[in-house]
Design a protein around this nucleic acid. Structure first.
Lengths: 242, 242
DNA sequence: GGAGCCCGATGGCCCAGTTCAACGACACTT
DNA sequence: AAGTGTCGTTGAACTGGGCCATCGGGCTCC
């Protein structure tokens, strides 16, 4: 559980590493607003988690907002019989935990060892009054998430297995590039089971589809944790229903 | 198209009807903030649309934020070959059109004749500085939308046809109740095709499942546009995977 | 008032993707 | 090095829901 690895008590106020990640995250410094990052730094705590550790669970009181400094996190929801829907894969620079008084709407779990920055929701809300830019940025990020969620609904409701897997690979590649990872291989820190639950498929179908892409020369699979997009354009075409 | 029925030029500043709808919408008056509604009223325009009229299309520049005063609206996204995913059904008191500079992420279309309140995005953003409460409320609404989107992903990715249709009926009933509609019948202003595209099914499967529910005594179908939830608890149970 | 049209319901067949099962590749343990 | 567990892949059979076709009711328009 998260509590076991929670080191925020030991290192309060440590500067957030993601603030150096190209301003992707909401705690990045804004132009001409030099005061703001320090104000945020003053209230953030860091959480160091091992792989496959839960950050919070669906329904937990929403006390903090999280930002990923290092590592990868997945969000998911469960049905009573154990069926699972992974709603997002998140990486360095991404944030999560935006919720109202109803509690978190999903469970958050690390996929790799992770270093998270954590902001108390109450304190953050108090800071909104002083630094309106902050809330604006948060609203912008929520709108981005919303657009991604709509895109995922289109995928889940209307795409074929082949299109789903292609969309997944293309999405990971695009986001890795945005984080500055321009290597030939895309990291797949999640299990096949996670991928299946993200795409609304079974692990068998994910595995078969990846094998098919490999046989067709569209991708390379150097090891379980990586994929090389050899024909990225063709994959993008497949992803969009071509 | 929307332009044809757009009456905002004729009746600028007309008070927004949804402000009387129990404070559900973001333009509702806040406690102890009597100044705010009038500021909003001053900048809103009304749009009167016939049924099956488009409000805006995916990719259009996001110039306005909309709030539904009367009528019902659907949001959807398309694949290049025409496959469609309806991402939301909206009713009086709901808002839509939240977007960044990338343009709207979805198309919005009326399902019935509708009266919409419309706020210019630029002016709204300027008002945020003066009335911070506004932006807070908008962020809260975006978070609500996000939670609903996650719930819909769970439905699309992991629920059976039976569970999807039950979830749909229960959701409509719950939202109708929240709007004060406590009658025995739930309104279904959308076509079977819309329902299918919302649930990631075909019209045939929706039709068959509704018929099955009717035969099992779970619902009544007095006419095409209404459903009576005779066994609401059982439907809720089915919806949650029981 | 009947011809055409749209929409929903229903029946029958079919297939993409699931389910079930077996197997191989590692990693960790003893 | 043998034993055990986990994870991914592959094969074979099954099925939920899609696809195609038909039909019927209500609507509009001559």
């Amino acid at each position: 559980m998260a509590q076991f690895n929670d080191t925020s008590a030991e290192i309060p106020g440590t500067p957030c590493l993601i603030c150096e990640h190209g301003g992707l995250a909401f705690c990045g410094p804004g132009p001409g607003d030099a005061d703001e990052p320090s104000r945020l730094s003053a209230m953030l705590g860091q959480v160091n988690l091992i792989a496959h550790d839960s950050v919070f669970r669906e329904g937990d009181p929403a006390t903090h907002l999280y930002s990923i400094s290092q590592g990868a996190v997945k969000l998911y929801k469960l049905l009573s019989d154990g069926r699972r829907q992974v709603t997002a894969f998140l990486f360095a620079g991404d944030f999560f935990g935006l919720a109202l008084d109803g509690g978190y709407a999903y469970t958050a779990e690390t996929m790799t060892p992770a270093l998270l920055c954590r902001f108390p929701r109450r304190k953050l809300e108090a800071l909104f009054a002083e630094v309106p830019r902050l809330e604006r940025r948060l609203l912008g990020l929520a709108i981005d998430d919303l657009a991604a969620a709509h895109e995922q609904m289109l995928l889940l409701g209307r795409k074929t297995a082949r299109e789903k897997v292609a969309s997944f690979l293309v999405m990971l590649d695009r986001r890795a590039a945005r984080r500055g990872h321009h290597g030939p291989a895309v990291a797949l820190p999640m299990s096949r089971s996670d991928i299946a639950d993200y795409l609304g498929l079974t692990i068998e179908t994910v595995s078969r589809t990846l094998t098919q892409f490999r046989r067709d020369g569209l991708i390379g699979l150097p090891d379980l944790g990586h994929a090389v997009l050899r024909e990225a354009d063709r994959l993008r075409q497949i992803a969009d229903g071509g």
